[in-house]
């Protein structure tokens, strides 16, 4: 159906990135004033690649994902930058053009599986409408595709379960249904916004490996949003760490985890249990994430950073070393990173 994603020849011959986000800026205008939720966010994603988008709650991960889907609504608006998807700037598309793309070439999965399916509509209704929103097929054919998709994500007896309502599924099963819906059109890109956060650990792991398997099977690019760095380790190729609406560190996962440059990334890593040696205390980053309506001047992390000085009152530029970039005036040197 979708020659691009599954055909290895096109995958390799096209050097153009699937997704190229450049200087994205999103603002929200409320009665508290105007706040910048996303400020100058740039990253690229090749076909089949997995990007981990990591950061505390409120750092702008969801808003980034929703911008790519063209789902930013009042009081928010994209007010700068480009979202080049396969060469087309999504930020410039009309509502109708975006509607045709959504669910077909870019799909999204959300955080709370208990809330993502409409409680009063059958699973079959919610799947068939997705098929028929983009492909002109018969009801029978749409139903067959829906059933196959349910089978693929590991739902037992898909034919029977198709006519059930969401409340008849467990949280984990509902998230599988949502994934099945996202995969219906074998999209080029799936944005997964904390899809396992609300689930317990074993189910989290199952879903994670299921998504990994299916996306690599179809060559689907994946943006995995999470506040948990440890999830990203085994999953992603690249990681982007967000803070205060900016990407503060960006690079290959192994490298970022081995030698973080930004002070915030370091703090995040120290709060991951598995990474700490036994006996070490887990160190949570003290303080709170800033509100978009009262962003600190300069580096947004400044009020919580023990290395902050006068220089940090200026916004740090994005400093790139090879494919590893960061926004910090006083980055951790690789020696210091290893020693601490």
């Amino acid at each position: 159906m979708n020659g691009f994603a599954s055909d290895p020849k096109t995958m390799h011959s096209s050097s153009r990135a699937l997704l190229d986000v450049r200087g994205l800026k999103v603002k929200f205008k409320t009665n508290r004033g105007e706040g910048t939720a996303i400020n100058d966010v740039s990253f690229t994603l090749r076909r089949g690649e997995v990007l981990g988008l990591v950061g505390e709650s409120g750092s702008g991960k969801s808003v980034t994902g929703m911008s790519l889907m063209g789902l930013i609504e009042n009081p928010g608006r994209i007010c700068g930058g480009q979202i080049l998807f396969d060469g087309i700037d999504l930020a410039k598309l009309s509502d109708l053009e975006m509607e045709r793309l959504r669910g077909k070439r870019i799909a999204m999965i959300f955080q709370d599986p208990m809330m993502t399916l409409n409680p009063v509509l059958r699973i079959s209704t919610q799947m068939i409408e997705t098929v028929r929103a983009h492909d002109d097929v018969t009801l029978v054919e749409a139903r067959r595709r829906a059933r196959d998709a349910l089978g693929q994500v590991g739902i037992p007896r898909p034919e029977e379960r198709l006519d059930a309502y969401p409340h008849e599924f467990s949280g984990g099963m509902r998230q599988r249904v949502a994934i099945a819906i996202a995969l219906l059109h074998k999209p080029d890109l799936i944005i997964a916004d904390e899809p396992t956060t609300a689930l317990d650990v074993t189910i989290q792991a199952q879903i994670l490996s299921e998504v990994q398997k299916l996306t690599s099977e179809y060559g689907t690019a994946l943006i995995w949003i999470t506040h948990d760095l440890s999830i990203v380790c085994g999953l992603a190729d690249n990681v982007a760490v967000m803070y205060g609406g900016q990407i503060v560190e960006y690079g290959p996962v192994a490298e970022v985890i081995r030698s973080p440059r930004h002070r915030y990334t370091d703090g995040l890593l120290n709060s991951v249990p598995s990474r700490n040696r036994r006996g070490d205390r887990l160190r949570q980053i003290s303080g709170f994430a800033p509100s978009i309506f009262s962003m600190p001047q300069g580096c947004a992390f400044r009020p919580r950073c023990s290395f902050a000085d006068d220089a940090c009152h200026q916004t740090p530029p994005l400093a790139t070393h090879g494919n590893h970039a960061h926004r910090c005036w006083h980055p951790i040197s690789s020696r210091e990173g290893l020693g601490s």
């Binding site: 959504r102 669910g103 799909a107 959300f110 819906i181």
Partner: peptide, 9 residues
């Protein structure tokens, strides 16, 4: 939101 993400009219 999810229904919109599916590309429904």
């Amino acid at each position: 939101k999810f229904a919109r993400a599916k590309g429904l009219s």
